[in-house]
Nucleic acid binder design. Structure first.
Length: 300
DNA sequence: AACCCGTGGTG
DNA sequence: TCACCAAGGGT
């Protein structure tokens, strides 16, 4: 298969079928791109769209978020899930102010050093916000490349160096075209080459797809461990945080006690929230979102 | 490396 | 219906 052909076909398909997502518009800056990427970590696009817009209205630049409390970040995060990301995003804003003068850095190494920014997000920002030529490999890209190029059923549990190498080989030399190609492959994985029921009939690379040619083998075992939720600490954390999020300021522990009957598990969940920087004890028997409280009166 | 971390839509 | 899972990161 020709790498050039693959990239060209996918880009042509993208030009016609790409979703009109707000963070793909021309004048969207690096900070807005970064916020979108963090929100999209394990949260579906449809739920991110409105949250992203509201977030940027309130905090148009990293310094704006850095100056506000973790509590407000957690509230604004709403119900996107994994609220640790809200705290890390604020930590990230603080780091951008302290290390980079309030501007989102453009070097991969600097991006990777930011809180909540890993292999995928760093590359996504470098490519989509700054037009650099880096392979951007998320679960969609991994699946597409694994299938189309290697002809294998599916990718491994996490991004590996080999995935970056395989994807890099598909990218055109010109940086802007490479970034566009990455976005296009990602979109193809999201809309056509999906995990569960791929729509090969509408796929632009069906004729050169190694997986299609080999009969679309199905993964041998379960791709990953099933996510369980009901009855777990995660559910209890979610319930506790829900109460704290709706309250203003400290909440007496008695009110938190009502969300879950098992004392041991509830305590463990609360400790976890404190450990993660989401919640803090106040006055011995109450708890609040970190930094939450009445506004500081402005002195005359 | 394996496991933990939320939430809500859906086939 | 309910198991599955969606632009990952941290430890």
């Amino acid at each position: 298969m020709s790498e050039h052909t693959f990239a060209t076909l996918v880009r042509q398909w993208y030009a016609e079928h790409a979703r009109d997502l707000p963070w793909r518009k021309p004048d969207v800056g690096p900070w807005a791109i970064l916020v979108s990427e963090v929100m999209l970590q394990q949260t579906p696009v449809a739920r991110v769209v409105p949250a992203w817009a509201a977030w940027l209205v309130r905090w148009p630049e990293p310094a704006d978020l850095a100056a506000d409390t973790p509590a407000e970040a957690i509230r604004m995060w709403g119900r996107l899930g994994y609220p640790r990301r809200a705290v890390r995003l604020r930590d990230c804003a603080v780091a951008i102010v302290e290390r980079h003068g309030g501007r989102v850095p453009d070097r991969l190494e600097q991006l990777l050093a930011l809180p909540g920014v890993g292999t995928y997000t760093a590359r996504a920002v470098a490519a989509f916000a700054y037009g650099q030529r880096h392979p951007v490999v998320d679960t969609n890209v991994r699946r597409v490349v694994c299938r189309a190029v290697a002809g294998e059923p599916d990718a491994g549990p996490a991004t590996r160096p080999a995935d970056l190498v395989a994807t890099e080989a598909l990218l055109p030399v010109e940086p802007a075209a490479a970034a566009l190609t990455s976005a296009a492959i990602m979109e193809l994985g999201a809309l056509v080459c999906t995990a569960r029921s791929p729509r090969c009939g509408t796929c632009p690379v069906e004729s050169i797809c190694a997986w299609r040619a080999s009969g679309q083998a199905v993964p041998a075992g379960p791709t990953r461990r099933p996510q369980r939720y009901a009855g777990t600490d995660r559910q209890v954390r979610g319930l506790l945080l829900g109460v704290l999020r709706e309250a203003t300021g400290p909440v007496p522990h008695q009110r938190l006690d009502q969300v879950w009957a098992d004392d041991v598990q509830r305590s463990r969940a609360l400790s976890g929230l404190i450990q993660d920087g989401l919640v803090e004890p106040v006055g011995g028997s109450s708890f609040r979102l970190v930094g939450d409280g009445p506004p500081v009166p402005v002195l005359p």
